[in-house]
Design a protein around this nucleic acid. Structure first.
Lengths: 174, 174
DNA sequence: TTAACCATCACGTTGCGTGATTGTAG
DNA sequence: CCTACAATCACGCAACGTGATGGTTA
């Protein structure tokens, strides 16, 4: 139902995050509808990268301070992304050093982009930034693009590009 | 010398990626200058996120095949970033759902900074960005700060802060 | 002798996957 | 009886960290 393996369910039972409601008389695990609901939440949190331990905390303590855990995870994701970016820069340097100086192509046209790039942002980071902007304040995003002198058509393109990567169900590599 | 722990060196010896050149008569590990060089490379590759296995391959087969491995790692980094991005989106959705209506007010300083931070920028990167902005287009910088609702006084503080550590002539390493 | 090093070895971590062995349903 | 399920348990993975136990050096 959720694309999980049998051993995953056994593991969830073992660590106490999802115990089946009952057992058959021959000791087979019987999962109830409530279990299914719970598992659905577990999968959701797991896709958000939360640890089993954190998920157990969230589900046992669901009335309240879950927000802190989620925000903590958001910050951790930011850290991981920064780490990956620095790895990216390092690898790019290693490859450039080994293959001789390669021309990078037409870099960028806008001053704003150039400044962000000079500050260490790469394509992926800019995409993430646009996506944040678009998801948090779409009309402000539009206004901001207009303020950079970007024409309506391209602004729309950028905003659609910001949304690339569909929500939740079945992602594809872009 | 490289900020590694003792147990890390022991581990590197155990898995055969860095064996000390010799042993003292009481069986103590003795690392040579060549070992130090090798370890430096290992650290570099490790910072690029390469596995110990891959590093061993790279160091034993240093003539050629390395490029493929490095490029493979670059692609893997891209995958990981996309995964993190989807986690980010999911968490943002969960938080928005839990905290009620999304942020619909105008973009202020806090939101803008939070978006940049969520995109992976840290304090240092923001400082670099402000410096670029201030040096390339001071009045636009001022206008931009005003558009975020930042009062004149603080804007001036930020602009002066932007110049801190700015090189007198020529740019730093990029 | 005592402190402060070193050596080897075993086990813990995370989130499961992979058997091995044994029991059960149809 | 055969096949396809189920259950439990032990071990493995990556890259180390953390003791335990015992030898070496000043």
């Amino acid at each position: 139902m959720f694309g999980l393996s049998r051993s995953t369910l056994l593991y969830y039972d073992r660590v106490g995050v999802l115990a089946p409601t009952g057992r058959s008389r021959s000791n087979y695990r019987l999962y109830s509808e409530a279990d299914r609901k719970r598992l659905e939440e577990i999968c959701s949190f797991r896709r958000a990268g939360l640890s089993i331990e954190d998920i157990r905390t969230l589900l046992s303590n669901r009335t309240e301070r879950s927000t802190g855990l989620l925000e903590r995870r958001l910050r951790a994701i930011g850290d991981e992304m920064r780490s990956l970016e620095s790895q990216q820069r390092l690898l790019a340097g290693l490859l450039r050093a080994q293959a001789g100086g390669g021309p990078r192509g037409p870099v960028d046209k806008a001053l704003f982009v150039e400044m962000l790039r000079a500050a260490g942002m790469d394509e992926a980071a800019m995409h993430r930034w646009h996506r944040e902007f678009e998801s948090r304040a779409p009309e402000a995003h539009q206004a901001f693009l207009r303020s950079l002198g970007i024409p309506e058509g391209e602004a729309l393109r950028i905003r659609r590009w910001s949304l690339e990567g569909a929500p939740a169900a079945g992602r594809r590599k872009r």
